[in-house]
Write a protein that binds this DNA or RNA. Sequence first.
DNA 1: ATTTACGTTTACGTTAACGTAAACTTTTGC
DNA 2: GCAAAAGTTTACGTTAACGTAAACGTAAAT
Lengths: 136, 136
Amino acid sequence: MDQKFSISDLAREFDVTPRTIRYYEAEGLIAPARDGQRRIYSGRDRVRLALVLRGKRLGFSLAEAKEIIDLYSAPQGEAFQLRTLLEKLDEKREILEDKRRDLDAAISNMDKYTARCRDRLAELEERPETAAEAAE
Amino acid sequence: MDQKFSISDLAREFDVTPRTIRYYEAEGLIAPARDGQRRIYSGRDRVRLALVLRGKRLGFSLAEAKEIIDLYSAPQGEAFQLRTLLEKLDEKREILEDKRRDLDAAISNMDKYTARCRDRLAELEERPETAAEAAE
DNA sequence: ATTTACGTTTACGTTAACGTAAACTTTTGC
DNA sequence: GCAAAAGTTTACGTTAACGTAAACGTAAAT
């Protein structure tokens, strides 16, 4: 059930080069098993790669992505560990929320502008000769 | 009413260096007026700088940010221009929506994990000796 | 059996996005 | 009136995140 993947399997699936995946390993983001020299990626490795790439799309550096992703495999044995983990999660959550605020602002900004453009176009198509009026 | 800013005014406000702002100018993202040699930034320049920095926080390169921001100062004189502008806006909007999907997934992912951590901690604090049970 | 495809390590190259320093001019505070 | 602060251009340096190429091992297909 737990699938195994080669480096080019994952490269194809996520549309990156093997070089990129090896680089992420060198940076401590993924740690695949080995069959001799060859890297063998588990389902969990695959998930981590997906998380790294999503982090990158959201504007995180590899180091920042690692900080977040590593929280998902942090030890949770003792209450103390759980409490510091919860603190760190809260800290990262705030960063994500900041990004959401930025993103929502960008989208609603664009939507308003788009609406104005549509209005203006409708104006132009209805009464093309008096179009200048709409600007007042 | 239309305020003027020096380069260090904006650098302070947005917590970047003057070098960064000059670099954005060299890349065509801002085009401040000049008083002799000195750059004079208008309110509109200031808005553009804010947009660039928000774009960066959302993971856009300067070139990508420029593509989006330039749409907000595109010519809208003729219906044809408005139509192609609306097409480009739609294209960029999809990119923003993709990011929002990524971001929502990241946040809800983290929230679920956080909830599990809280449960586990509550378990540990209530019956510390039988904590191992919670793992089954 | 030997291309062909895929894997490995090592190492140098590249690009974006600035940092840093020099050499100089222009304002501004006292 | 003059030192300190802020501005300018030019140019070289730096870092992250890979790309690219060489030189080599291995497995699969023809």
